[in-house]
Structures are given as C-alpha cells and as structure tokens.
Design a protein around this nucleic acid. Structure first.
Length: 196
DNA sequence: TGTCCGATTGGT
DNA sequence: CCAATCGGACAG
C-alpha cells in the first residue's frame, strides 16, 4: 500500500488537483473498508480567488483548516445538509484547497449502498455531497492529517494528460471574473462525473 | 441578537 | 424550477 504522505499536498492547489485524479481514497473503520478512485476535483486558490472561502484573506471558524499546512482535510457542511471534502494544499497560512467532487467505487460498494438510498450505483458518488454521505465522511475529519487510519489516499495508476478535461468550477456564479477559471478537472468519459 | 445564505441534492 | 435545513458569517 503506497499511502500518500502530507508531503504530496505541499504544492500549489492546481498541481495537486491534477495529480489527485486517478488516485485512490480509502475509508476504513472497524468492520468495513471502502476504496474509491478520484475522478473529479476542483482547485481553490486562496486569498485572490473570489470563489474561495478564503477570498480576501478571510479567516473564520469554518475555514480555519484552510490556513493549516498542506496535507490536512478541510470538511465543511453546506446547506445544513451535506458535507464537502477538501484537502488543504501548499504551506501554512496559504489558504488553498482541492475539493473532491466525484469518485468511482472500487471496493466495498455494499457499504456505499447502505449509506445512500439510490436506484443506480452511479448516483452513489457522483457529487461532493453524495460521496461524503456514502463514505460516512463528516466534520470529524476537519483539520485531520491525511496520514490517518480512517481516511487516507493511496497511489493509483498514472493518468495521461489527454484524459483530463479542464472546465470552469461548478456553482460559483458569485465569483465574478474568477468563475471562468479552468480549475475543475475530471477524467474524460468517466461515468461518475457530477451533473452539468 | 437577528437576518441571510450556501464549493448541493432530490423531487416537481 | 424550487424546497430542504442549519451552522456560521456578518451587520448592528
């Protein structure tokens, strides 16, 4: 098992985002193990990025994890209903992160089905709020290191650059000129890409 | 203290 | 298209 160390994340968010595609995310606990493959991500760049929670250097209770070192999770609740999973990148006090938007089940799909009532398996993990629900990821992982026994990454196959689609990020209409930046990355033709 | 709203989702 | 649903951001 080649577990990704914190070191992997101490780079610019855009670079980490591209490199995370194709890597595995593993959720393990007493009694179960779920392995998924990352197929869609978004990079959030920091103080100058109007789409980011840290725009303008805002530091609040919610986004505090973004100001920690690269290699910790940033998990927040949205719409009072769902959780979004991010990994902080870069160095301390450089609030960048990568949002995990969609994943493909590899192992332990029964557990995912148990956690989300859906008609199709595609609908288990093809969105940021869906995958956290299916994988039992909540705020308890906020600020936790990626070198963690219950939620961590491991090496997947290398992805060829021509298999990666670059697109504008989703649901950030408020971000003015930043909304058109091509910071959403996903695997071409993958079945588990989020809607839109 | 009070009001407003979202890096989403599911159901019309 | 719109409601669900609530912690937290922010104004006063």
């Amino acid at each position: 098992m080649r577990c990704l160390k914190e070191e992997f994340f101490k780079k610019l968010a855009k670079k980490v985002a591209l490199e995370l595609l194709g890597q595995y995310l593993i959720r393990e606990c007493h009694g179960f193990k779920v392995v998924v493959r990352i197929v869609e991500v978004e990079a959030y760049l920091g103080a100058k990025d109007k789409a980011s929670h840290a725009y303008g250097g805002r530091r609040t209770k919610r986004n505090n994890a973004m100001y920690q070192r690269g290699g910790v999770f940033y998990v927040y609740k949205i719409y009072g209903l769902y959780h979004c999973l991010n990994v902080v990148t870069g160095i301390n006090n450089s609030p960048q992160a990568v949002l995990i938007r969609a994943v493909e089940p590899i192992e332990g799909i029964e557990r995912l089905r148990k956690n989300r009532a859906t008609k199709t398996d595609k609908n288990l993990t093809n969105g940021p709020g869906k995958l956290t629900q299916a994988m039992e990821i909540n705020s308890s992982f906020n600020s936790q290191s990626v070198e963690n026994k219950e939620l961590y990454f491991s090496r997947g196959e290398k992805i060829k650059i021509n298999q990666i689609i670059k697109a504008p990020r989703i649901n950030i209409d408020y971000a003015e000129e930043c909304k058109d930046l091509l910071l959403r990355f996903y695997l071409k033709g993958n079945k588990f890409i989020s809607a839109k």
